[in-house]
Design a protein around this nucleic acid. Structure first.
Lengths: 323, 323
DNA sequence: TTGTACGCGTTATCAT
DNA sequence: ATGATAACGCGTACAA
């Protein structure tokens, strides 16, 4: 409630003097600066952000957009974003992609946005980007010259997964996908199919699921009734693989023992499964850090850039060594 | 970049007419309203939040403060907060408790704050609350008339945990605590000790840890060298219990089989352990919803309130039935 | 029904 | 070294 003019009144100076003193200008004597600083502290003064922003035309805040707060998946990504942005003098706020929160971008509450939520409408993104708002996307698909992308190397990851199954003696591949409109899912599937072609002419079983644990449980029944000989599963994310463990066990099939299985994302839960889930890993922290560096670069250097985060195979006992 | 006066110019009206038209006032004709609305859309107009806030003196944004984004633990709590706030017309932003983000409260970027982060300094909280800023704390300890509390019933939960161990035949209790300055930890410990006294005069083994998985792993060695007869473990949260599983196994001790064990929080990972971890559950969604209702009540009805979230025992195979 | 003018809190320019 | 004042974008009381 206490503003710059309250301080001015109490100190018997003008508001400009107060502003100078508080913002470290050298146009004011040490004595008055100290006096004003003390009064400001005494009155619990904090500059009102609205007034300040109106004048400065920037907030030094970056918005990170997630699909919904309940998903913990991206927490390490956001941790990486936040710590890096802090180094550059920006604060991070996390928003969910509701229509209201989206407006923070054109309302200029944020100086830039990092969008993780794949459901953030392409139309809005294109619209904002075209108007000059700074946007970094954490997924592919929408390609525009005025936005930046920082994405996981799905192609490399899918190849590593298929190669691992191949080395384990798999000849009949089962791929459990995410939602059909997911770019990650599409890209991983495509790369998988092209890699499989190098090894076999056998038809590939593609089961469409939804990237969730319960989706994996539901999908299990379609796998259980297959001929299990030389079969191997690539679950396009770990969550579904966790569901597959649970679902397949109900049918008396032991994933990881009867059937080699590998996931994608290196979800923490995978290491608590029995046998431990093999997976494709990438540094979520680094992913976030790169996104943060990119948004800062867009704001300060006014240039866009696209980065790809490398993946690596994590081989656990869910893929047995070929005897 | 396009403002209210750009629209006024293009529509050949004054800025007030534009404002009236856009804010649904009945002081303007339908025709002009439509015309102005169309022009606004055409120019991609979005009101600048700073200017708007300066006038309205509120943002309809509530800030949720977490310790750091990397911890996924509170995601369902935040989900509950966000969905409830939306019903009341508020947007949710999640901030980490760095010194800079804290200022959002006195800077009036947010109309109120829900603080989950236990490390948010008491001094700042007291200071803000005293100045009339609306604050809801998700933990106990700091008690002031001008702030509200929405907390988990640690006392009830601890009793349920100890009772479950008692029923399983435990006579020698081992309690693994969180950081000594954690209010949750203190409260759970205190209630546990008082409940244990009802059953036995035996000394209780208290091992101080830190609420993390690795803390649980480290603590295991102190338990492994104990005489395991009629011993039982109450880990004051699930994360440490997960670590205890891993750590104890290294010493050839099987938690949940050789030693009954129970945690607190109902972390998802517990159900993937073998045997499944018994725990104390509470609705994280409801916890968040209550906090949201409370902050709205503070803002609109100008009254504080304190709520307690009930707990319940979830008995899994980590506590065997007494034969 | 529409236009003019002021105020919100801050920063910055220009005088003094 | 300090003060008066304009400007930022918006909402609204008041005048026309």
């Amino acid at each position: 409630m206490t503003g710059i003019k309250d301080i001015a009144k109490k100190a018997n100076v003008s508001i400009s003097t107060v502003s100078y003193a508080l913002n470290g200008s050298d146009k004011v004597s040490e004595k008055t600066r100290d006096r004003i600083t003390n009064i400001a502290r005494e009155l619990n003064y904090t500059p009102n952000l609205a007034g300040k922003t109106l004048k400065r035309k920037k907030t030094d805040i970056i918005g990170v957009y997630v699909h919904d707060f309940s998903g913990y998946f991206y927490s390490h990504v956001i941790g990486g974003i936040s710590s890096t942005l802090k180094k550059f003098g920006y604060e991070t706020i996390v928003c969910s992609g509701g229509n209201q929160a989206r407006l923070f971008i054109p309302q200029r509450l944020v100086d830039g946005a990092i969008i993780i939520d794949p459901n953030f409408p392409d139309e809005d993104i294109a619209n904002y980007a075209q108007q000059g708002y700074k946007i970094v996307l954490m997924w592919g698909g929408l390609s525009l010259p005025s936005i930046s992308h920082v994405v996981v190397d799905n192609t490399q990851g899918a190849k590593q997964a298929i190669d691992a199954l191949h080395l384990a003696g798999v000849e009949n591949y089962v791929i459990v996908t995410g939602p059909t409109d997911s770019y990650d899912s599409q890209q991983r599937l495509e790369a998988s199919l092209s890699e499989i072609q190098k090894f076999t002419k056998q038809p590939v079983t593609i089961l469409t699921s939804d990237f969730t644990i319960s989706g994996g449980i539901d999908t299990a029944k379609y796998i259980a009734k297959q001929d299990l000989k030389k079969i191997g599963i690539f679950s396009l994310n770990d969550e579904m693989a966790i569901g597959l463990y649970e679902g397949l066990n109900k049918f008396g099939v032991q994933p990881g023992r009867d059937i080699p299985i590998i996931g994608f994302d290196n979800d923490q839960i995978g290491q608590f499964l029995n046998p431990q889930l093999s997976t494709i890993d990438y540094s979520k922290k680094q992913w976030g850090e790169s996104a943060a560096e990119t948004i800062v670069s867009m704001i300060r250097d006014k240039k866009t850039e696209n980065k790809v985060i490398k993946t690596r195979l994590i081989k656990k006992s869910s893929i047995a060594d070929k005897e």
